[in-house]
Design a binder for these strands. Structure first.
Lengths: 209, 209
DNA sequence: CCATTCAGTAAACATCCGTTCTCCGACGCG
DNA sequence: CGCGTCGGAGAACGGATGTTTACTGAATGG
């Protein structure tokens, strides 16, 4: 049996993960294009040259972080899209899930918000592609709802993209409030998000005219 | 008479503007926190030390760029809010104005989209403050429209913030398409924006329930 | 017209950067 | 056990960075 297999690979993955974590930590106060390779390795406690065993350069590290960050978002979207008969209740649940996610994964959502329009082309493209996949997923889920009867695929997608954009913006705004420790602003933002979703929901119900 | 006054100050302003322009040009492919002071002065053709005659550091340059960029946006908002009886026509006009603005001031809107969630705190705060002022302006204009009868100030502001966010996101998306020279994507994005505005407009009309 | 102000210059500084190279030592496998 | 593999260490490099210093020369204003 190969019961000892992978001690080596496990250590490598551990270092790789440490590099990703360090990058994410540095991203809290800088943007990706200004992060130094040495800065990352210093935080992890390895030699600068060790970086090249895992990534070609910093942009490459960034692309890996996109997958990690938006991977954890998949769970959020699924929780939001969970069956829920009442529209109002679904909105409350959505905002609650987003709030919880922001509290649990602040670094990930900050990274996405920051680099979505950031200075590294490869990372921008990776984020755009991943968010487009999310929009498709949301559109598919919206189609199942009775409110969407008679909607074209195109219109469902434009609505889904609106929801995804709104989600990212809301999460980012909530995070900024959390950074300042401003819980009052956080509650205000959550209430604003609920009302905006309510307005979109209203527009949705009267689209067939 | 002081008819010769200002030759000196005029030259200084000229250099200052050149520094701002150079910064904006560099911002096309980097983010602010990774721009070097020497890089900027090199592009202008002045000595590095000359930079300190105009700005304390790069973040300070960034804050100045915020004022310049969002100053030019004021005209856009005013053009959008121009009286227009028909809602559908107002939407068309809005998107057309945004398209025109993106074509005319690509660097400015890229800067705002990039640094709104970017790595420099002072710049983020400056952008947030300026966008909040825009939202107030939009809310005030919305109140004048008959559709807003019975709306609370709070609700008007949440709607206005939604419009401002949507404007920034649309402009940024249009710019990305323009960068790729993809005119088909640009037209698709414009149509999507129109439909999203239509949906919001619908929700607005049925808010009083 | 002459003393003063001041935007911009030129050089020097300590520091940090990304990258390459050689080497080591622990793990993997037969 | 013994040999090949390979993640990581360590040192060295050329170059770029932000900042300070003393300076120059033209516009300024009494």
């Amino acid at each position: 049996m190969s019961h000892t297999t992978g001690v080596r690979q496990a250590q490598k993955q551990k270092t790789r993960q440490a590099l990703l974590d360090a990058g994410l930590r540095l991203l809290a106060e800088q943007s990706l294009s200004s992060i130094g390779l040495r800065e990352v390795t210093r935080l992890v406690g390895v030699a600068p040259a060790a970086f090249y065993r895992h990534f070609r350069d910093i942009p490459d590290l960034g692309v890996a972080l996109v997958e990690e960050s938006l991977g954890s978002l998949h769970g959020v979207v699924r929780a939001i899209l969970a069956e829920q008969p009442d529209a109002e209740e679904r909105i409350d649940r959505t905002v609650a899930v987003v709030e919880h996610f922001v509290r649990e994964n602040p670094a990930h959502i900050r990274f996405i918000a920051r680099e979505r329009h950031g200075g590294v082309r490869a990372v921008r493209r990776a984020i755009a592609a991943e968010l487009a996949r999310f929009a498709d997923e949301v559109a598919a889920a919206l189609r199942e709802q009775p409110v969407s009867d008679g909607w074209s695929d195109d219109d469902l997608l434009m609505l889904a993209e609106m929801y995804v954009d709104h989600l990212v913006m809301t999460a980012s705004a909530l995070l900024d409030a959390a950074d300042d420790g401003d819980t009052a602003a956080r509650d205000r933002l959550a209430e604003r998000a609920r009302r905006q979703l309510r307005l979109i929901s209203l527009g949705r119900r009267h689209w067939k005219d």
